[in-house]
Design a protein around this nucleic acid. Structure first.
Lengths: 143, 143
DNA sequence: TATATTCTGAAAATCACTTTCAATGGGGGG
DNA sequence: CCCCCCATTGAAAGTGATTTTCAGAATATA
């Protein structure tokens, strides 16, 4: 599936008349082999050990491209840091965010989604995206 | 209920050994008599017409105090502006955010809340707060 | 009222990005 | 295979929102 995502990204690059570069490949590899919720800073630091010449701006620019191409999603957890998560075809999930240790747990719940759609309908509202985050203490941190 | 909130805030001020000042009173009045979702900028501009000497920093600092005292809530809608909304005792609501015109519609749904609690439980997670936002087109903007 | 803090406004600093710019590098046309 | 036109890059400057600093002003308490 890493391959599938690489293909999606390269197709996107081509379609847009952009260029395939060494930096983009390196950043894509680093992103695909990282945790699911990576802040830009974290990814940049991870990259820096092996590729110290890659600039901060390039990481920012490239992650934006990942999001546009559909292989990544931008997320904000209210801590002023933008994160990117991997997107898998047709899947949607929400997050439990531990305010103690920062752990992020993903979950899916169709009933909630259905109810959201009902609420929106009843207001004549057309949902494009949504964000559901539960903040609190994860199992480990409760003790 | 404005009075109730003023009291809550003053009690908070006292409890913390802080001081009651002219500026805080003015900002509190302006906040309480404003729309439910006010950005800091908006509140600052509103204040400036009558009280041009109140500084930006003071507005920021004071709104933070409102949030700490429990009479206001900080919210982020992903547009890089922090907003504050009024908090009413024991009430919780979520938002429909129109990505076209910026309108914000509030809603409550107990069933969703219940399902959220179930999801959290099943992960051993203890919810403190949550955020549910549905982004899309409001009734007016759909046409 | 004296006194010890806390507050305030203005300006400088920070933080997380974004843009600029000159140099470098892909990649289709010839 | 080489050109040449753009896209891309890294470093540095620029942004926009928010915070901090600092010296003077305002409160609360003794």
């Amino acid at each position: 599936m890493k391959k599938a995502k690489k293909k999606i990204f390269h197709d996107f690059i081509t379609r847009r008349g952009l260029k395939s570069t060494r930096q983009r490949d390196i950043i894509l590899d680093a992103f695909l082999s990282s945790e699911r919720h990576m802040s830009i800073e974290e990814l940049y630091l991870k990259l820096r050990t092996r590729h110290p010449s890659i600039g901060y701006a390039t990481v920012y620019r490239t992650l934006k491209l990942f999001a546009e191409s559909g292989i990544a999603n931008e997320i904000h957890f209210g801590d002023g840091q933008t994160r990117y998560e991997h997107v898998s075809e047709g899947e949607h999930h929400d997050h439990l965010v531990c305010t103690r240790c920062g752990a992020i747990i993903e979950f899916e719940n169709e009933t909630i989604e259905k109810l959201q759609a009902e609420v929106a309908d009843s207001h004549g509202f057309l949902i494009e995206t949504h964000k559901l985050e539960l903040y609190g203490a994860c199992e480990k941190c409760r003790k």
